[in-house]
Amino acid sequence: MDVTNAIEAHGLVKEFGGFRAVDGVDLAVPAGSIFGVLGPNGAGKTTTLRMLLGIIDPDGGHRTLLGEDRPIRAARRVGYLPEERGLYPGMQAREAIAFMGALRGLPLKEGRVRADAMLAAHGLGDARHKTIRTLSKGMAQTVQLLGTLVHRPQLIVLDEPFSGLDALNQQRLEGLIREQADAGVTVLFSTHVIAHAERLCERVAIIAGGQVRFEGAVEEARNRLRPRVRLVTRAEDGPWCAALPAARTREGRLWQFELPETGIEPILKALIDGGAGIENLAIERPGLHDAFVAIAGEAAAREMDQPQLEAVA
C-alpha cells in the first residue's frame, strides 16, 4: 500500500490508574524516513509506541499504521524491537532469528536461510549454532535485532535500541539503521540519547510529560535558536565594545553572544576600526541538545543526560 505517512496519530491519550501517561500526542512519520522520538525516561515514549503498534489501545484519539486503522492488520509488515530484550536462552542464534520471522509469517526454512546470511554479514557467522546464553550481551542484542528485520518489514520500530550497547555496537546499529532507510524502509526509534537522533534522523518528536513539545525537521528545531559567537580579543576594552550585543557574557578577553539579525559584518568592522585585535572568532550553530533544552526545558534535559552517563559508566 502506497502511503505518504507510514504512521499517523491524532490526540492519543493513555491513562494508568488515573495517571495520564500520554496526553494528546500527534505524530506524522513520513514513509521512508528515519524518525526519532526524544524524551527522558517516563516521558511517555514507550506507551506511545505501543499504542501506535496496537499492542495497547489508546483511551482517546486514533492512529493509522501503514494505512491501516487497525494496526494488527499491518503487523506482518512491521518489525518491532521492544525496550525489554528477550530471547530464549537455550535457542541457537540462527533458530532465534528464524523463529522471530515465523511470528511475522515468514516460513521457518526461508528464515534459516536469511538468518545465516544476516549473521555472516554482521560478523556472527560462526555464532549461528551457538545458544543465546553463550553469546555476549552485544551479540545477543544483535541477534534480536536481526530477528526484527528478517521478514523484511516496511516499517521498523525500535524502543531505546542503543540502551546497554557499547560504543562499537552503537556505531554498528547506526549503520544498520541507515542501511534500512537507504532501502526505503521507514525507521521509528525512541531514545533518550540526543546524539543518536541528531546523527540519524530527518525528523523528530520531542516528548516531555506525555505531550509532544515539538514535531518536525531536525533543522527546524535547531533553527529556533540563533547561532552563538565566541570572540577572543587582544584588547580588553575600547570603543568597539559598544558594537557588541548588550546580552553578552565575558570572561577576561573571551566574549560570547548570540549572532545578531544584522549578521557579523557590522561587528567585525567595529572591531577592526577600533583596534580590538581579533585573536579568534567562531560562529557556532546550536545543536539538537540546545534545541531540546529550549523546547522541553532544562529539567527534562537533565533527566535525558543522567541515563546517558549511566550507560557509559
Rank of each mutant, 00 (worst) to 15 (best):
L146T: 11
V150K: 05
G111V: 06
A120Q: 12
G147A: 09
Q141M: 11
G111P: 05
S136H: 06
D126W: 12
L135G: 00
Q144F: 06
V143T: 10
S136G: 14
G147Y: 04
L135M: 05
A121Y: 04
L146S: 07
L124A: 00
I156W: 00
V113P: 02
V143W: 07
A140R: 13
H122N: 11
L135A: 05
T134Q: 07
L124P: 01
A140C: 11
G123Q: 01
T142F: 09
G123R: 04
R133L: 13
T142C: 11
K137Y: 11
H122R: 15
D116Q: 13
A120E: 14
D116P: 08
H122C: 07
T131R: 15
A117Y: 01
P153I: 13
G125E: 00
E110W: 05
V150H: 02
V113Q: 14
R114I: 00
E110I: 12
A120G: 05
T134H: 09
R128M: 06
H151V: 09
T142G: 07
R152N: 12
V113W: 08
T148G: 02
T131D: 07
L155W: 14
G138Y: 11
L124H: 01
G138W: 10
Q144L: 09
V143Y: 06
L135I: 03
Q144Y: 09
L124Y: 00
A117D: 10
I132S: 07
